[in-house]
Design a protein around this nucleic acid. Structure first.
Lengths: 145, 145
DNA sequence: CAGAATCCAGAATGATACTG
DNA sequence: CAGTATCATTCTGGATTCTG
């Protein structure tokens, strides 16, 4: 197995060597756990739910009110997905009216640390990203128009 | 602005306090840089491209051959998206036949570090995630069948 | 070689109405 | 309160064909 998709071993400083040492296979990319996780939390709402549940546990409608713009359906689906992956715990209280509380599992809490690393990167560099996007949009205008 | 979506300040150890200190607004989640980055690199191929380009620069067809299963169209679209965001640099050599080399920009290289943190988490915990998925699949079978 | 253009299938997301 | 069911729409990814 190539090391390419098994762990991103280190922040390689990109030697930019013009030679081609290895053929770079990357066969089993479908099972790559990195892509797998990225696709799970890369959807529209999962990160927001994880962050909110990282602060404290919440009831369903608290999340619904707290995340402006999410539909009931998508909140349910997001929570189910995170629950199936073992990141979120769902606890039902058989009261009337019924009450359900969501919280992060221990596994889910371990995700907060690497997530905060990526969040820090995003906060630090989203200005540069947006400038780059605007610059390329302008370039496209000048190309096409 | 709420602090909820601006940086995931720290790996909060989830006090699980039953009180409700703050109302948790999360208004401007559409502009949340964390979700923004996650959605960019959470697609099917971006992470693989970033990892490969983190090792060294590549020509178009090297990437095409190196990433088994990717279509020409998706490789082009993925590279364009990363280029627009300022993470990938595209350099054209006007030879015949033409040659194009892709490499990470300095901004793109800074992403390797937080990405490797998340990758480490994924590698460490994807076993637990898959067990959880299988457990819930089995539970669904017993529920529905 | 490195793409662009076109067409298409399926998944993700959303609005709305209904239920225990 | 906490969902489920249904339908419509948008987005994503892919196969194929064509070009400088």
């Amino acid at each position: 197995m190539s090391a390419a998709h098994t762990g991103v071993p280190a922040p390689v400083p990109a030697p930019l060597d013009t030679r081609m040492p290895t053929p770079v296979p990357v066969e089993e990319h479908e099972a790559c756990p990195v892509s797998d996780v990225l696709r799970r939390i890369g959807d529209k709402w999962s990160v927001l739910v994880i962050v909110l549940l990282g602060q404290r546990r919440h009831r369903f409608n608290e999340l619904h009110r707290g995340i402006e713009g999410i539909s009931q359906r998508m909140l349910t689906r997001t929570l189910r997905g995170l629950e199936v992956d073992g990141l979120v715990h769902r606890e039902v209280f058989p009261t009337v009216p019924p009450s359900v509380e969501y919280s992060l599992t221990p596994l889910g809490r371990t995700l907060l640390e690497p997530l905060s690393a990526l969040a820090g990167w995003a906060v630090e560099h989203h200005g540069a990203i947006e400038r780059s996007r605007r610059a390329h949009a302008g370039a496209a205008d000048r190309d096409g128009g």
